[in-house]
Amino acid sequence: MTRRVLRSPTGLAGAVVVALLVLGALVSLVWTPFDPTLVDPASTWLPPLSGGHLLGTDGSGRDLASQLLAGARVTAFTAATATVVAAVVGVGLAVLAAVPRHGGEVVAHLIDVLVALPTLLLAMVLAAVYGGSVWTAVVAIGIGTGVNVARVARAEMTSVLGADYVLAAEVAGAGTGRIVRRHVLPNVAPVLVVQLSLVLALAVLAEAALSYLGFGTPPPTPSWGRMLQDLQQYVTVHPLVVVWPGCAIAVVVLGFTLLGDALRDAIDPRMRLPGQAAPAVEVLP
């Protein structure tokens, strides 16, 4: 599957971008050209490639390249952890809603209600109560996107649960837990992977938006969203500076989206064999 993703040009591009993000985040743990939070009143608003500053400096004389590298850390961390939260929330709710027990319908409706709740609004409420932090952003983004995952996963699970092999397993005496583990989850895994790769892109965007609005990563931790917010007011005076965090956010979101698309193409057989009905993903083990 990995080979299939990398063979498509979009998949390769996405993988490269994501690899760069992870690399940047890892490198920033041990090295940045300058201390990203070090202010220097003697070198404010330096243009790129001056005084050893690759991308120049901001109004406090902080190195923009170092801030971007350190910001990658927050972005990568938030995206990854929010996606884990989304997976847990999504799968958990989907299983509760799909498995025919009393209460399943209620959970299904609950998911529909939660889907209608905007993620940013949820994050702002959480930030207002618990204070803005990386963790509030992670939880809010995880829950907000998790319910969307749950909605898709539930539909898939319901169709799997109606399959003959599930009936056969039930007749053979398998419990609900075993059926979910052995039949349902493996069968919805491809759909989940695609969904979660899209969650990664959404999480990057949501983190940037939250930090931009002041509800995400608190200062002085560098974050792309906060950089964008801090620098955009100078767009009329120093038009170039705001380009860097803006581009970083756009490119990384695009990278995750391309990767997600390529993953879907690679996994979903319908995309590979146009015009053909989808075969059963897996037969009885």
């Binding site: 201390d35 939070t37 070090l38 202010v39 109004g59 406090s60 200062p219 002085p220 906060r226 801090d230």
Partner: peptide
Amino acid sequence: ARIGEYVASQLGQ
């Protein structure tokens, strides 16, 4: 935030 970040950075020095 610029004021607080500045003070924090200078004290860090």
